[in-house]
């Protein structure tokens, strides 16, 4: 081969080798499409999956309400990028200013988008804010591992304003802020009085198995009864499609009742965690997406609490 040909080949090899660094990486797109579920009420429904590099953590529902004077956002999503794309999605629906961002609880998929709303008032229950402060670092690290590049530049930004429960008017529209617990130590539900839409956060899962890393099952079950008594016309669960009745509550309740019973009876029998993991789920719960995975996680989160009281002090 001539030296010119060698030079051409060398150039070609270099070009191929360097190509990925020369083309600017395109920002991944969550494809957020606000879905109108009532007058001036929009939901962005996430996939009923676990965090992955495929979904970038878009496994959660976020929502916004267009009040007469501005926009109220409920949960900000799993990453800085999600928050930015949510903001752009809202701007495509309405030119009105953003008035407030609520975080329903301190789990990362519900608030790591706060970074994109740093210039706006962000609000959450005091227990949520302290949870975001103490666990935000570990949450973020975990999501980087599970969702990869989508998380680029994401940092935990806790909400700044503590919420107290009660009726508030924001931008000329009344909202009922409801303090509950069970999924975590502080779970905020929001009832939009005008539309009758209840934003239940992760107190309700619909066709997606409930998660329990900070759950107290008995408290959660009591909360579900109180939620069911509220005058809502449409419910937005934390995960799963909006549902016009109490089916989400009923499914979450059925799963949690079974979970609690399975943990308690196994502990009383002297079973070990690995034996419980091998147990089949009842058929009506086994068909809920991710129920097998979440059951295994719940055993790790909760079994010790049921097992400890079965043992007696030995001297």
């Amino acid at each position: 081969m001539s030296s010119a040909a060698w030079r051409a080949l060398f150039t070609l090899i270099c070009a191929v080798a360097l190509a990925p660094t020369l083309v600017p990486a395109q920002e991944p797109d969550y494809g957020l499409a606000p879905q109108r579920i009532a007058d001036d009420v929009y939901v962005l429904v996430g996939r009923t999956e676990d965090f992955s590099r495929g979904n970038g953590g878009n496994i959660v529902n976020t929502a916004f309400v267009v009040a007469p004077e501005g926009v109220v956002v409920i949960d900000s999503g799993p990453s800085r990028l999600y928050g930015e794309q949510l903001r752009r999605a809202i701007a495509r629906v309405t030119p009105k200013p953003l008035l407030k961002v609520f975080n329903t609880h301190h789990h990362p998929d519900h608030y790591l988008g706060n970074q994109a709303f740093a210039d706006k008032p962000t609000a959450a229950l005091p227990t949520t804010i302290s949870g975001q402060r103490s666990e935000g670092g570990a949450f973020t690290e975990n999501l980087y591992r599970m969702a990869g590049d989508w998380m680029k530049g994401t940092e935990s930004v806790p909400a700044r304003e503590p919420v107290s429960p009660g009726l508030v008017t924001i931008g000329g529209r009344p909202f009922e802020l409801l303090l509950f617990a069970g999924h975590t130590q502080g779970d905020l539900a929001i009832l939009d009085r005008q539309s009758g839409v209840l934003f239940a956060g992760d107190l309700v899962f619909w066709n997606r198995a409930p998660t329990t890393p900070h759950a107290d099952v008995a408290t959660w079950l009591a909360t579900l009864d109180r939620l069911e008594a509220l005058p809502f016309r449409l419910m937005v669960p934390g995960h799963g499609e909006p549902v016009p009745d109490a089916r989400g509550i009923a499914q979450t309740r059925a799963y949690l009742r079974w979970l609690e019973g399975a943990l308690r009876s196994a502990a009383e029998r002297g079973d070990e965690m690995t034996e419980l993991l091998a147990r089949p789920l009842p058929p009506e719960l086994a068909t809920i997406p991710l129920s097998r995975l979440e059951f295994a996680r719940s055993v790790a989160h909760l079994y010790r609490r049921y097992e400890a009281p079965t043992l007696k002090q030995a001297r």
């Binding site: 965690m273 690995t274 034996e275 993991l277 295994a296 055993v299 790790a300």
Partner: peptide, 16 residues
Amino acid sequence: VSGPQVAEDSMNVPVG
């Protein structure tokens, strides 16, 4: 040997 596929709590991984 029995255990979870994924260790949810790396400090307490149940093994049988």
